[in-house]
Nucleic acid binder design. Structure first.
Length: 194
DNA sequence: AATGCGATGGTCT
DNA sequence: GACCATCGCATTT
C-alpha cells in the first residue's frame, strides 16, 4: 500500500524519483528529540553524471549511493558541513537524491536551537524562519545528522532517521539547474515546491 | 540584490 | 596538493 508506493518511487532512476520525493516527510530522533520536516527541494545525481560523487565508481565514501534504495548517503564537505541524500534506483547502481530544503513539521523549537543556539521567538521567526532549513547542510544540522547516520535504511519504522509519505502535496514544481557544482552545470535536475 | 571570501578537513590524484 | 553537491557575514552596486 503506502509502503509499496514509497518503495516503487525509490526504485526509479534518480531524475524520476527526485521530483516525487517532494512532499515526503523525514523524521529524525538522532539528536535525542523528535524533529520532522517535509521535503521541498531536491537534486538528482546518477552514476553517468560528471557532477555525481559516484561518477568514478564505488569508493569507501560513496558506497551508500550503491546501497539499497532508501539508504541514507551522508557526506561531509567543506570541512564543516554534512549533507543528506537518499539512495535510489537499485542496489549496486550509484544514484541518489540530495535533500536541499525542508518545511518544518515537528520539533521546530528544537531545530531552531540546533541551528541558531538560541530560543525560538515569534519576533526572530519573522526574519530568520526562511533560512532555517533552506540548504542541504542546514537540513542536516536541523535533523541532527552527522556521518554516523550514513548507511541508515530510512524505510525501517524503527530507524532513527525515517522517510514516509506525507499528506498529498499539491504544489507546482519548479525545475532548474543544480547548485554548487562545476561539472554538468546545465543539467536541470533540481526541483522545488513552488 | 549581487558578489566575494574565509572557515576547515576529508577524499582522491 | 587540488578540489569540494556549503554557509554566513562583509562589501559593493
Amino acid at each position: 500500500m503506502d509502503e509499496d508506493l514509497l518503495e516503487s518511487i525509490l526504485q526509479s532512476p534518480a531524475p524520476i524519483a527526485a521530483p516525487q520525493l517532494i512532499g515526503m516527510v523525514l523524521t529524525s530522533t538522532l539528536g535525542g528529540q523528535k524533529v520532522a520536516g517535509r521535503i521541498i527541494e531536491v537534486e538528482a545525481y546518477t552514476q553517468q553524471d560528471p557532477a555525481s560523487h559516484s561518477f568514478n565508481g564505488r569508493t569507501l565514501r560513496n558506497q551508500s549511493m550503491f546501497s539499497r534504495p532508501g539508504t541514507a548517503y551522508v557526506y561531509f564537505t567543506y570541512g564543516m558541513h554534512h549533507c543528506l541524500n537518499i539512495s535510489v534506483n537499485r542496489e549496486d547502481v550509484g544514484e541518489a537524491v540530495l535533500i536541499r530544503a525542508l518545511e518544518p513539521v515537528d520539533g521546530l523549537s528544537e531545530m531552531w536551537h540546533r541551528r541558531y543556539a538560541e530560543a525560538f521567538t515569534e519576533t526572530l521567526a519573522a526574519t530568520k524562519l526562511k533560512q532555517l532549513v533552506n540548504g542541504p547542510a542546514k537540513v542536516a544540522q536541523a535533523l541532527g545528522i552527522t556521518r554516523s547516520a550514513n548507511g541508515i535504511y530510512m524505510l525501517d519504522n524503527n530507524s532513527s532517521l525515517h522517510l514516509s509519505l506525507g499528506e498529498p502535496y499539491e504544489a507546482e514544481l519548479v525545475q532548474g539547474p543544480r547548485v554548487g557544482i562545476s561539472k554538468a552545470v546545465g543539467t536541470p535536475w533540481r526541483w522545488r515546491a513552488g
